[in-house]
């Protein structure tokens, strides 16, 4: 019970955090805390097998899947605080409270009776006990879950599959396309300049400088530029200039120009 009384408040707080955290990643981490705590509670309740499953399947697989999708969707995508459906939040709170209070009151009124405990059932060990029940009484349901899992896997594959609408470009076609672009639009033919020539701590956020001292904006990721966590290219240029002690006049260039945008 000590474990329970320690973990229960933590779980409730973390669960509530799920409601209020702005960022989805934080939600995932809070959920991970709740799940691991639950696993401990399972262990406390004489369910070591489910303890392991909870850690491996839930925390290990499912939650990681969540994080994986979060990364795909955009880890920085955060909810706006404004509620779009009028009255939804208030109603949800009221109904939720009503539900929770009724549930708790109802449970409190029910006497569960003597707790039998699992000492007898777990006499041979919990895993063996579960296996006995699972492969005898529940064997049919167990087999059916295999069908369910296969169906789910197939469904995920179908949903994730993207039909190719245009023929796949081979190396030769890509090269031809590049030459064509160069011929028609004068687009830079060679590799892009790599960033980080004058990097001091993080090469990726420092743009490259062109031979004339101007900044090659195509050398840094657009994502970083959009996020604003990039060193200002003209600023870098001036730093370089200062370091070099030269008195060359570096042209001021606007960060928002799209000079390198097409090269990616």
């Amino acid at each position: 019970m000590i474990a329970f009384w320690i973990l229960a408040p933590v779980m409730v707080v973390c669960a509530l955090g799920l409601l209020f955290a702005r960022k989805a990643v934080h939600c995932a981490l809070l959920l991970a805390v709740v799940m691991i705590s639950l696993a401990v509670l399972y262990a406390v309740q004489d369910a070591p097998f489910l303890f392991a499953i909870q850690i491996i399947v839930y925390t290990g697989a499912i939650l990681m899947l969540f994080l994986f999708v979060l990364m795909l969707v955009g880890v920085d995508a955060s909810d706006s605080v404004v509620e779009t459906i009028r009255g939804q939040r208030a109603l949800a709170t009221i109904v939720g409270l009503l539900f929770g209070v009724t549930l708790v009151v109802g449970i409190a009124q029910v006497s569960v009776g003597t707790v039998v405990g699992l000492d007898e059932a777990n006499a041979e060990g919990n895993v063996i006990g579960i296996a006995r029940v699972l492969f005898t009484k529940y064997v049919f349901a167990f087999e059916v879950t295999s069908a369910l899992l296969i169906t789910a896997a197939l469904g995920a594959m179908v949903l994730a599959h993207r039909e190719r609408l245009t023929p796949k470009l081979g190396q030769a076609e890509v090269a031809a396309q590049r030459m064509r672009d160069y011929a028609e639009h004068g687009k830079h033919l060679g590799p892009l300049p790599s960033p980080g020539v004058f990097a001091r701590h993080n090469a990726v956020d420092t743009p490259a400088l062109l031979p004339d001292g101007s900044v090659a904006e195509s050398s840094i990721s657009r994502v970083l530029a959009a996020r604003g966590s990039v060193n200002s290219a003209p600023g870098s240029a001036r730093q370089v200039q200062r370091l070099g002690g030269g008195d060359q006049d570096v042209p001021e260039r606007d960060d928002s120009s799209d000079a390198g945008g097409a090269g990616r």
Binding site: L18, A24, V73, D79, G100, L103
Partner: peptide, 17 residues
Amino acid sequence: ILFTIGAVGVLTRRNAI
């Protein structure tokens, strides 16, 4: 309590994940 919190979460959060 956890169930209720989860339910309220479903109702209030908008990020599908």
